[in-house]
């Protein structure tokens, strides 16, 4: 299955995201922000982490208005799978494809460390192969999700503590249909025992799967 990794000026984690797709048995292609269409044969979309447009105005705000996002919107509207990680999560919220917004961390600092998550909703097509918990790193400055958890489909929560100060300890959400998922932690950095965790692999298997 072919996963299009969407790049913007300032994307950073596209290579590790593509490696995670390959580790999960998929193939990865790259799409550029100015492209009008996703690469031919795209089955799923992955928006990676980074600091698109230098986080100017608001993180993800400018990238979310790039031409490729119209193609991502059509893909999601047709039920296609979309995963946004870190800045990709911010882009999906700014694009209106996911509920809520990402605010500066309550600590007003860049937070970089391993965290434990609860998989709060394992019934979406992207999270259904996951265990009850996962160990993944976070690395961000504006990762505090803000929104109405009752109106959102919360799929990941920080376990035991709330390192960024997000509403209701939310770490990731899905759209109502469950085919679009975004999270601030980095599952692509948890796909190999050398990285200390392989808990991210099921997410990429689900992304790269047709089932």
């Amino acid at each position: 299955m072919s996963v299009a990794v969407v790049r913007f000026p300032g994307s950073l984690d596209h290579d590790s995201a593509a490696r995670a797709v390959v580790a999960a048995g998929g193939t990865a292609t790259f799409a550029w922000q100015d492209d009008a269409e996703l690469p031919p044969g795209t089955d799923a979309v992955l928006i990676p982490g980074g600091f698109s447009y230098g986080d100017h105005l608001r993180p993800g705000a400018i990238a979310s208005r790039a031409p490729i996002m119209d193609a991502v919107r059509r893909h999601a509207g047709a039920g296609g799978r979309v995963l946004g990680i870190c800045n990709g999560f911010q882009v999906l919220c700014e694009a209106g494809l996911l509920p809520g917004a990402l605010r500066p961390n309550a600590t007003l600092s860049f937070v970089c460390r391993q965290v434990q998550l609860d998989v709060a909703d394992g019934s979406t097509i992207l999270t259904r192969g996951m265990g009850a918990t996962m160990s993944v790193p976070i690395k961000n400055h504006d990762g505090a999700w803000y929104g109405d958890p009752a109106a959102a489909r919360v799929v990941f929560r920080y376990r035991g503590e709330n390192p960024l100060g997000s509403t209701d300890a939310v770490a990731g959400v899905a759209n109502a249909r469950g085919n679009v998922v975004g999270l601030m932690p980095h599952p692509e950095e948890a796909v190999d025992p050398l990285l200390g965790s392989t808990d991210g692999l099921p997410l990429f298997r689900a992304l790269a799967s047709r089932a």
């Binding site: 605010r103 500066p104 961390n105 309550a106 600590t107 007003l108 505090a144 803000y146 100060g165």
Partner: peptide, 9 residues
């Protein structure tokens, strides 16, 4: 009502 950590700091 939205946390403004920059303003607080």
């Amino acid at each position: 009502g939205v946390l403004d950590p920059q303003g607080q700091a």
